[in-house]
Amino acid sequence: MMTQLQMLQMFWNDWGNHDVNFYKVYVQCGAISKEDYKTVTGQDYNIETTMGA
C-alpha cells in the first residue's frame, strides 16, 4: 500500500503531472503536509499562488 506522498510522487515523476494546483488541494484538505508538498514539487507551498488562479 502506497502512502499519499508516494502516490503523489508517482503522479509527478512517472505520470508527469506538474500542475502544482493539483497538489495544493491535497495540502488544503490535510492529506499531505506543506513539507510533503515541497518534497513532491520541489517548491515551497505558497497559498497566494492559488488564490488568483
Rank of each mutant, 00 (worst) to 15 (best):
M1K: 15
M2A: 07
M2V: 04
T3G: 09
Q4M: 11
Q4K: 14
Q4Y: 05
Q4W: 03
Q4E: 08
Q4F: 08
L5I: 06
L5K: 15
L5A: 10
Q6P: 03
Q6D: 14
Q6A: 08
Q6N: 12
M7V: 09
M7Y: 05
L8M: 12
Q9E: 15
Q9H: 13
M10D: 14
M10N: 12
M10W: 14
F11Q: 01
F11T: 02
F11L: 10
F11K: 15
W12D: 00
W12H: 13
W12F: 14
W12M: 03
W12T: 02
W12C: 00
N13G: 06
N13A: 12
N13V: 12
N13F: 10
N13W: 12
D14C: 03
D14V: 04
D14E: 15
W15H: 05
W15I: 09
W15L: 13
W15C: 11
W15Q: 11
G16N: 00
G16Y: 00
G16Q: 03
G16M: 01
G16E: 03
N17P: 05
N17V: 14
N17W: 14
N17G: 04
H18A: 09
D19Q: 06
D19V: 08
D19N: 15
D19P: 00
N21K: 12
N21L: 10
F22T: 02
F22E: 02
F22Q: 06
Y23F: 04
Y23H: 04
K24H: 06
K24E: 07
K24S: 03
V25H: 14
V25C: 08
V25P: 00
Y26M: 10
Y26T: 01
Y26Q: 14
Y26H: 15
V27P: 01
V27R: 00
V27C: 00
C29W: 02
C29A: 08
G30I: 08
G30E: 02
G30H: 03
G30D: 10
A31R: 13
A31F: 06
A31I: 04
A31M: 10
I32W: 02
I32P: 03
K34E: 15
K34Q: 14
K34T: 14
E35M: 02
E35C: 02
E35S: 11
E35V: 07
E35Q: 03
D36Y: 05
D36L: 04
D36K: 03
D36A: 11
Y37E: 00
Y37R: 02
Y37P: 00
K38T: 07
K38W: 06
T39L: 08
T39Y: 05
T39G: 02
T39C: 04
T39Q: 12
V40M: 01
V40I: 15
T41S: 06
T41E: 01
G42W: 07
G42D: 07
G42H: 05
Q43H: 05
D44I: 05
D44C: 01
Y45L: 08
Y45A: 07
Y45N: 10
Y45I: 00
Y45D: 07
N46H: 08
I47Y: 05
I47D: 07
E48I: 11
T49C: 04
T49M: 06
T49V: 09
T49K: 12
T50M: 10
T50F: 08
M51A: 12
M51P: 05
M51R: 09
G52L: 13
G52F: 06
G52C: 02
G52T: 13
G52I: 09
G52M: 08
A53W: 10
A53N: 13
A53T: 12
